[in-house]
């Protein structure tokens, strides 16, 4: 996994509460068996006028001009400002894959849905929860000046606004450690294989019906 340490980037404000994962990446794009290539269809229904199809070229499609990512000033944005309960709904990891593939590195919101929040960390994407007033301030500052950049420092657990205001955020130590070092979760868990075996042996004794072979 690509590590995340410190990132400075253009912030794009998506001023909409309860953005669900169907909105982030509509179902027709979930038919892919790959992890990449979802960026061009990120927010497909918000971004384009027509109904997108998998494998379709997106360059000539009619765009919704008022949508934030279609505005010239937010081209190349890598930090997404969002509202409450971002990423609710389906567990599809295609949502963080699409955000990552588009070029986002961090998402800042007052709250996230649990499964989405979790999925971000597996993909080098940092979801940041700030106080509602802090998010409001970021929205206001970003609107004020074109090209406004936000600094995200995972080591220090801070977000710095375009005007220089600094906000602290919380992140679990384990997740932070994995993200800072780009560590593969599975490899780390497999280092604990003897603990897993010990648990299994005990459990097999207590609840043997859970370990019966399952025929075809």
């Amino acid at each position: 996994m690509r590590p995340f340490t410190k990132h400075t980037g253009l912030a794009a404000p998506l001023d909409l509460a309860n953005v669900d994962t169907d909105m982030i990446i509509p179902k027709q794009f979930l038919k892919s068996i790959k992890r990449t290539g979802f960026g061009k269809n990120l927010f497909d229904e918000l971004r384009y006028e027509d109904e997108g199809q998998p494998d379709q070229e997106c360059d000539g499609r009619p765009i919704r001009k008022d949508f934030v990512l279609n505005q010239d000033r937010y081209k190349g944005a890598s930090v997404l400002l969002a509202r409450q309960n971002f990423g609710c709904g389906s567990s599809r990891e295609h949502a963080p894959w699409a955000l990552d593939d588009y070029g986002f590195r961090a998402i800042i919101a007052p709250s996230f849905a649990d499964i989405f929040y979790n999925n971000c960390f597996k993909n080098g994407l940092l979801p940041i929860v700030l106080q509602a007033e802090e998010v409001d301030q970021l929205f206001a500052e970003v609107a004020l000046r074109e090209g406004a950049q936000v600094i995200v420092d995972l080591e220090k657990q801070t977000v710095t606004s375009p005007s220089g205001a600094t906000f602290e955020f919380n992140v679990d130590n384990f997740r932070k450690h994995c993200l800072l070092n780009g560590l593969d979760d599975i490899g780390l868990t497999l280092q604990q294989d003897s603990a897993i075996r010990r648990y299994e042996e005990k459990r097999m004794n207590d609840a043997p019906w859970l370990f019966l072979p399952r025929g075809q």
Partner: peptide, 8 residues
């Protein structure tokens, strides 16, 4: 769970 966790 997400797909990374399915693999996990």
């Amino acid at each position: 769970i997400g797909t990374s966790e399915v693999e996990h």
